[in-house]
Design a protein around this nucleic acid. Structure first.
Lengths: 376, 376
DNA sequence: TCGCCACGTCGTAGATGTTGGCCATCGGGC
DNA sequence: GCCCGATGGCCAACATCTACGACGTGGCGA
């Protein structure tokens, strides 16, 4: 492939002039045109590897998550990539599977590749060490949890209020023995959600008894077992808040196994809304703004790239309660249309539910078109 | 950060010896040990950018798909990344949104970055042009469709037999007016699936009338509208085969809107099985081996990297029919356990359904554990 | 009118960090 | 003594960007 010397020769200028012409240096219009013409004629594309070596930084950023097959991360990844693309950056995808060693390997690669930045969902608050990156001036933004090793930008969802709203909703529907299936005590998100759940129980009209809490592992099987354990209690709950999408899937499976459905049992969960409006029993969900979290994380990264020495920011994005399923008080045979609730403001929903989250920038007119993607 | 000269100085050898010590050249054990020690002391990591420049190829491969938010691509991406990681490669993720221009930009980047290879789901059979990559010796593997511009390795699912099995199943259940909602005529996969659907109708016990086919756009809204159109016919179908997961979501939405469910209407679809066992009406699905397609594509890429001049391969992976929902003939109030059918061999299913596809290599004992990932 | 200075433009050379080719050296076996 | 293999050092190459210096021109003051 043609290199910058070939172009220089063809345009009758020096390589430096070609570089300046392409990267916004001061070049006379006449020469710039000659360079432009030579580039097109030779099909010249600057070698990004050589550029990266010389400039000491690449146009690639790393996204380290636990598993792209989790729809939460899927939407997050899309948010990151959309922002990156707008700045001519590429995204490398790293599935660390919640394994600190695997994660450390990827962090090493990010360092060795001189990457432009890292967006990370830390596998562990204590073990994840990003100081090597920071020392080298590579910006790092954490999602959901902040590693202890350093103070860095963080983006989170408003887990506490989301859990509060969902619990409040179950209480309003008349459920009185509400349990919570949450994640391990090591997860900040799990604790936040539990906090919101408990806060709703401290209000005036809530039952006085202490609500039951099951700690599972944020995985399908964990949700399945926790739900079965709860249902086996001598006094089983009449409603359950499940704090992530995978466990919700397992919990639903358990309910299916026993033929339980509302209004016999109330169910609310955190998670995405791809399919939760289609399942039975209908699932009220705390929608997490995964796409927006990804966007924000990438934007913080770009900001920090420009201004490395500003104080770390902590961003908390609002969640949204999507209410579905028949109310216990007004037991209705046909499912009512979903309502979306954000900070207690509700508005009706029209048309078929979209597969993708709303708010993609290019999805203004018809979000299904932009979001849907094609085949399969 | 320390470079190879620092290490050489610290170890008392030349930079070339350091390079050989790290890359498997012939170095005396004594010096190799000194180099090793120096590396660790200085925390030396070879600069992958410089290495890429010198070696004229990088350790990164591109995955160009239409949208990572589609679970099919999500599983595919995971398959690609697992194989890549085992060979110390990284994966950059590119969402082309079925837009040939966006796709061309990403192909350009792959060229400019001297990437190790490209796995692509072509946005268009006619417009997608990968010859520039091939000319530069960059291996390209196509998934699902083969671009016309060149003969390259391809990996596909056995769409035709999958559609046949699903249609056969609906016929066996006693449905007689089965319609098909498929994708645009431009998609090879859509045509393959339609072919299987029609083949099942040509068998002895099938109804003589010509089955109705709706061409939609492989998107949620397309499935919703197509289903509504079918139901508005004077003689609506009593069962429908939907040929992708997004349209299936829309079709289900339409059925919900009319309160229809089996055995009043039969439904089968292509797609993933994350949630299809939880929805109502229960969805019989043609499981596509997305993860395995990703693995195979990446493996073909690595093979071609080693042996560039072998003839292009065409790989077709089997699909699997996952039967659910009450049979029309033996109308059963409680849903029977799912059966999995592959080439007409069925085996019973136990335990809660897993979120992730089976077959992840490290998921032997408990696939939920490996697949589940953590928080959210 | 001449000279100096400032500015815009351009070319040369060097730097980025690694690897591989080439050659020299050394030691052992025949 | 010769040859061969193993080992290791030097140098160049990969393709780009940028610091520095040079050159020309135009303006302005003397």
């Amino acid at each position: 492939m043609a290199n910058i010397y070939d172009v220089a020769k063809a345009a009758g200028v020096s390589p430096a002039t070609v570089s300046r012409a392409l990267n916004g240096g001061s070049v006379s219009p006449e020469r710039a045109a000659r360079v432009q013409a030579a580039c097109e004629e030779l099909g010249f594309r600057p070698n990004r590897v050589a550029r990266g070596l010389r400039r000491q930084r690449s146009d690639v950023l790393a996204l380290i998550i636990s598993d792209i097959e989790n729809p939460f991360f899927t939407a997050l990844a899309r948010g990151v990539e959309d922002v990156a693309r707008a700045s001519n950056l590429s995204v490398v995808l790293c599935n660390a599977d919640d394994n600190p060693e695997k994660e450390a390997e990827y962090l090493d690669v990010a360092l060795a590749e001189h990457m432009a930045g890292v967006v990370i969902f830390p596998a562990s608050v204590t073990e994840t060490d990003v100081t090597a990156l920071l020392d080298r001036g590579v910006p790092v933004v954490a999602v959901d949890r902040a590693p202890e090793s350093a103070a860095i930008d963080t983006v989170t969802a408003d887990d506490e209020n989301g859990a509060y709203a969902a619990t409040r909703h179950l209480l309003d529907e008349g459920y009185r023995r509400i349990a919570c299936i949450t994640g391990s005590r090591g997860s900040a998100a799990a604790m936040e959600r539990l906090r919101g759940f408990l806060r709703a129980h401290r209000e005036g009209d809530a039952p006085r008894r202490r609500p039951r809490v099951a700690y599972a592992d944020f995985r399908v099987r964990g949700g399945y077992q926790a739900m079965n354990d709860l249902l086996d209690l001598p006094e089983p709950p009449d409603a359950v808040l499940v704090t992530n999408n995978l466990m919700a899937s397992g919990a639903l499976e358990a309910l299916h196994g026993r033929g339980l459905r509302p209004p016999g049992i109330g169910l609310a969960s955190f998670g995405d809304t791809h399919w939760s409006h289609l399942v039975e029993p209908a699932l009220t969900t705390v929608h997490q703004p995964a796409y927006e979290i990804g966007r924000s994380a990438a934007e913080l990264l770009l900001q920090r790239r420009e201004a490395p020495d500003t104080a770390p920011q902590r961003l908390i994005l609002p969640t949204r309660l999507e209410v579905r399923g028949s109310s216990r008080r007004a037991a209705d045979s046909s499912p009512p249309p979903a309502r979306k609730v954000e900070t207690r403001v509700s508005h009706p929903e029209t048309g078929p539910r979209q597969w993708a989250r709303l708010g993609r920038p290019d999805a203004a007119a018809d979000s299904a078109t932009a979001a849907g993607s094609a085949a399969r």
